[in-house]
Design a binder for these strands. Sequence first.
DNA 1: GCGACAG
DNA 2: ATCTTGTCGC
Length: 356
Amino acid sequence: MKMSHLVHTSQDGCRIVEIMNNAKEPSSSECNCPTEQMDWLSVQDSLKGQLITEDVNIFASVVIFERPDRVRSAYTLPSPHPTWWDFAGVQDSIKGQLITEDLRVQDSLKGQLITEDDFKWRLPTREKEGSCEILKYVGGVDLSFSKDDSSIACGTLVVLDLQTLKVVYEDSSIVRLQIPYIPGFLAFREAPVLLELLDKMKNNAHCFYPQLLMVDGNGLLHPRGKFCCYLKLEKRREFLSFGLACHIGVLVDLPTVGVGKNLHHVDGLTQSRVRELLQAADSPENVLPLIGDSGYTWGAAMRSSQGSLKPIFISLGHRISLTTAIEIVRMTCRFRVPEPIRQADIRSRERLRNNQ
DNA sequence: GCGACAG
DNA sequence: ATCTTGTCGC
């Protein structure tokens, strides 16, 4: 079995080690102190022996060392021998419920009734006959982390009035996360806390319960997102997950928009390429569809405020079309990051500060 | 040339 | 994500 570890150094000098499979050999430059190196490596080897017991495709653990011989904290995945594939199975079970525009097209072809965005409200800016309700309450969720202990997090849910962009509801909870951050598997780390906050609000039948949710993280803009729409179960190891916004959206069954502050590289899309296109396409709206090498549209890049060159990345979460998602993001942007997400971010960080 | 990969 | 500095990006 081939394994590797990534070593970071935290502010207080602790070594943070991520041990994983399928990666490259550790580079020797990461251990620059020769005397420590021996101890350090032997400790790690013994941990490897304990933590990694399956053959391949296992993420074992994240271990934080205070010293080479002392472990401060370690995360392990919940099941005894979890594999990436276990996680994928969980998500596949909820993927079947995902409703996107594409699925609705498929439904209409089958002679079904649903041909529009799947919600009963409408945007204030859109004229429509009938007396349907107007989108008013927009939720936003985010997590902040303790600088001292990166397993301590504060998840926050806010609800904003769309017209005024003022916060009308706020709730948060501080938890210890069990699952490490793994690129592509963000949902497993962050979704549980956020779902709890949403469930709590729903169970109380709160009158500000959001009609739409904005999530700090991608939706279909994800290595496996494309396959949500078209495949029930694609057993390819490269595509093992999908975005946080989809994950949450399906589980709370709300229209959901994903907003990323950085691009998750997918299907040939890179930061530089997007920048290039955005510059070339001097569209007045500052929006660019993110079309990958395969021709699939994963989402959109948008320069949301005048001041910022750096775009945000919008993608579908659930029960909404990209067009509508973009429109809502634009309506909620006072600064680069849409207000619901920005407020959740600010307030969760604040709560964490005051709590410690 | 190294490494790319949301939070 | 978090730390901070400085000012851009391959």
